[in-house]
Amino acid sequence: MASETVSKKPSFLAALNYLSLALMLAATWMVFFYAPREAVMGEVQRVFYFHVSAGWVGMVAFIAAAVAGIIYLVRPDKKWDVFSVAAVEIGLVYSLVNIVTGSIWARPTWNTWWTWDPRLVTASVMELTFLAYLLLRQSIEDPERRARFGAIYSILGSLTVPLTYMSIRIWRTIHPVVIGSGDPGAKGNFAMTQPMVFTLLFSLLAFTVFGVTLLWHRVRLGWLTERVEQLRLKVMGM
């Protein structure tokens, strides 16, 4: 396997670490000081930028995991499995950030931490599906079978992603659709001004770069784990 890729950290990855830090700090600054205060909801609306960005990275990560799963089924190569599980883990963390920030926003805006709205249900189903994915992997010892089942389940589970994305666009919901037109009954909707759009786009960029950086680290960790496992087998074989 790719032992050279494992042994030393690529300098591009090191650069990405600093870039992520800079972008995240800049995005945080923009959210608090550059973006204007929303007239109706007040300061709490500022959570919106990171809420959307985290949701975006989470969904993309789950889709990426499913794509890696498809590639693995077509051409069984360990590296796609390592990538797939890394993407699922990143997706889980980001989706959780998305749900928690949404909850913080909902408390003053909807007057409740949680409500059984289609968007909230589909988002939590998506989260639970990929938690089940981790549980599935944990209970299979044979690495080849674990990879194969993981690939299949990530593909099945990825069906929840478009469902979550579409849920506020096809069903009656109180969740606002800021980008595009949503349900007129949605509570907490607002029209974005130019600085708001700019802040949102910058947050999306920052979260995406940070997500890719984390993913890369996680993939490298997967390779290292793989390498340790191989060495262990080698030693035990002797």
Binding site: V121, V125, A132, L136, S139, F149
Partner: peptide
């Protein structure tokens, strides 16, 4: 799938229910 895993019966509802919702 579940029957080939270690926890078998335990695993099925966890795998099934999210996709069943």
């Amino acid at each position: 799938m579940a029957i080939q895993a270690r926890s078998r019966e335990l695993l099925l509802p966890v795998l099934l229910f999210p996709l069943l919702i």
